[in-house]
């Protein structure tokens, strides 16, 4: 149940760590897995150990998005339980999303963390193929 002001984890390498939902698109009710939302980046991810000492890439260059940016995102996990047509129910411990651009392609190049299999029905197969695991 993602709605206005919900804070979500961003699980791709776009540079955002925590984002806030600003708008649920094309819906009058709360959003679930596979729904598209507009988010505001609230916290940036700091690539300390990975890109800090070894590479010359600064944080601003590594992060594709910055704090305060307004982006589109797709929800990939919800803490609200979701019932499948076969009667099974899936529920995650957190709310998570992946940032996308206007045309629907993910901004980050990799996703770390499990995502819901509902993305397949909602035609987000690109995100599903990036994810290490889906359920």
């Amino acid at each position: 149940m993602i709605q206005l002001k919900t804070m979500l984890n961003c699980i791709d390498n776009s540079g955002a760590a925590v984002v806030e939902c600003a708008k649920v698109l094309r819906m009058k009710k709360a959003a679930g897995i596979g729904d598209r939302i507009v988010v505001v980046v609230q916290k940036q991810r700091s690539f300390g150990p990975e890109s800090g000492p070894g590479s010359s890439v600064s944080i601003s260059a590594a992060n594709k998005v910055r704090r305060g940016d307004i982006r589109h995102a797709v929800i990939v996990r919800t803490a609200k339980q979701h019932q499948r047509p076969d009667g099974s129910v899936v529920k995650f411990d957190d709310n998570a999303c992946v940032l996308i651009n206007k045309s629907g392609d993910p901004i980050g190049s990799r996703i770390n963390g499990i995502v819901g299999a509902e993305l397949r029905n909602k035609k987000w197969s690109k995100i599903l193929s990036l994810a290490p695991m889906h359920l």
Binding site: R77, G87, S88, V89, V90, A96, N112, I114, M133
Partner: peptide
């Protein structure tokens, strides 16, 4: 799974 708690019925 991947350090995220998952529950399934």
């Amino acid at each position: 799974l991947t350090r995220v708690g998952v529950e399934m019925w």
